[in-house]
Structure formats: structure tokens, C-alpha cells
């Protein structure tokens, strides 16, 4: 029997919204420790890795590890019926062939419950190696979203280079070139406005802006975003969910022909 109760159901809704355009049919893996998702997009260019700890839930029971095969666009439709302040309850029997979702509104006392048929999804588990990245940048997630949106006007590829000058985002296209340089900023009072750049060695990589734009759907989950890069490796873009978990995106670089 799997049963989990999340007082702030909106967190789970935001997680679904942050990945449903990138990965459609996913397994939500339930263990005694956490709910997690690890899934690549159909082109195998991006990987989503989500984790939400059992400590995020007011009640969490998982007798046996389960994989809940779901179509995220369908799950997203059901979450449209959840109120902002609703409590969310997930429930599935061990012989999981369906998932129960319940939304409880404490104020009005209404309870909505939905049943989703589960799918059997062949999951290819990927070995994501632990990497000591050469550059790690923490910045306001809204800033990253704005940069990605603005540079999409200039072209379809973003060059991200981390040097001692700072972190530079560049895009070149028909109409010209755009560069946005961010420097370390730990002066402002608001922690959330800080930009911290840890650079062990300079790194310069190119990425498809279309994917970076998909990733910024996770912006509502976290005021900060963490970018980690090493020469010639996929970038990791991490949106921490307070201390409760994260949504991480890995993106393969575009290589010089």
C-alpha cells in the first residue's frame, strides 16, 4: 500500500508542470525514502531527475517500492481541478493498476477524488555519474528565465561561458548577436538576488535554447537555480525545492562540427 499526504499540494502540481512538456509518459518511483522520477526526453538530449523526500509529506506510507506509470499531460489536467491551498493525497495498492488522487480543501471541506489508470512504462534506468563540476553558479531563477527568453530572439543556440570575468550567455542568429554577462553579486541584502560563481577552471559550452526554455518551467519551484558545468559534459540545471527535494535537468551540449 502506498499512501502520501502533502499539505501544500501545489508543490506537486508545480513539479508536474515543470516537466510535463519535456517527458510525457513517466514512472513515478515510490520508495520508503522519496518519490522520484528519472526520465529522458524522446530525443535523448535532456534528462529530468526529480526527487521529493518523504519528509515533505505529512503522512507517507510505502510498504513496497512501486513504479506508478503515468501520462503527465493527463495528470496535469487533473491538477487543474486542485485548489491552490488544497491538500493532496496520493494512494495506490501494491498491485498498482490505478492511482487515487484526492484534493481536500480544509476551508470549504470539499474533497475531490480522481482515479487514474496506471501504465506499464519500460523504464531505462540511466547511470548518471557523480561529477565534480569545474564551474558551479547559483543565480536568481527569474533572471535565468529572462536571459533564456530574451536570447531566444537572437538565435537557437546559447553559448554559456564561465570565466574569471563572470558568466556570459551569448546567442547569434540572422539579426545579429546578443551577450549577457553576469558577475558575482553577493552584496544585495536579499539572499535570493545573489549570484555566486565558483570557477575551478573556465568552461564554455553550447546548448539548444529550446531545451533551456523548457527547463525554466521549473522557475515557480525555486527562487534560485544552480548551473553546473565541466568542459565537454552535459550541463546540470538544478531547481532545489526548499530542503525537500529538487528538479534537475541534464542537457547534452551542441558540439562544433
Amino acid at each position: 500500500m502506498f499512501e502520501a499526504r502533502l499539505a501544500n499540494g501545489n508543490i506537486f502540481k508545480m513539479i508536474v508542470e515543470s516537466i510535463r512538456e519535456l517527458v510525457v509518459d513517466v514512472n513515478i518511483d515510490c520508495s520508503t525514502e522519496e518519490l522520484s522520477i528519472q526520465c529522458m526526453d524522446s530525443a535523448h538530449v535532456a534528462l529530468v531527475s526529480m526527487s521529493l523526500s518523504q519528509s515533505a509529506f505529512d503522512h507517507f506510507r510505502c510498504d513496497r517500492s512501486l513504479s506508478l506509470g503515468l501520462n503527465l499531460p493527463n495528470v496535469s489536467k487533473i491538477f487543474k481541478m486542485m485548489g491552490r491551498d488544497d491538500t493532496m493525497v496520493l494512494k495506490a495498492e501494491d498491485s498498482a493498476d490505478k492511482l487515487m488522487l484526492m484534493f481536500e480543501n480544509d476551508k470549504s471541506g470539499t474533497i475531490a477524488d480522481f482515479e487514474l489508470k496506471l501504465m506499464a512504462i519500460e523504464a531505462e534506468q540511466l547511470g548518471v555519474p557523480d561529477t565534480a563540476y569545474k564551474c558551479s553558479i547559483s543565480m536568481p531563477s527569474s533572471e535565468f528565465q529572462r536571459i533564456v527568453r530574451d536570447l531566444q530572439v537572437m538565435g537557437d543556440t546559447c553559448k554559456i561561458s564561465c570565466t574569471k570575468e563572470g558568466l556570459k550567455f551569448s546567442a547569434t542568429g540572422q539579426i545579429g548577436t546578443g551577450n549577457i554577462l553576469m558577475r558575482q553579486n553577493v552584496a544585495s541584502e536579499k539572499e535570493e538576488d545573489h549570484v555566486t560563481i565558483d570557477m575551478e577552471e573556465p568552461v564554455e559550452l553550447n546548448f539548444a535554447l529550446r531545451y533551456l526554455n523548457f527547463f525554466t518551467k521549473a522557475t515557480p519551484l525555486s527562487p534560485t537555480v544552480i548551473l553546473k558545468m565541466s568542459p565537454g559534459l552535459p550541463i546540470v540545471i538544478e531547481y532545489p525545492i526548499e530542503q525537500l527535494g529538487h528538479v534537475k535537468y541534464y542537457l547534452a551540449p551542441k558540439m562544433e562540427e
Binding site: 535523448h44 538530449v45 534528462l47 531505462e124 534506468q125 553550447n206 552535459p234 547534452a252 551540449p253 551542441k254
Partner: peptide
Amino acid sequence: QKRQSNLDAFFGLK
């Protein structure tokens, strides 16, 4: 022109 690589080159399938 830059060619898009894919993750299979970086992450081994378990």
C-alpha cells in the same frame, strides 16, 4: 554549425 550531441554518449544505460 553545431551538432546536437545526445546523453547516451555521456550516461551509460544501466
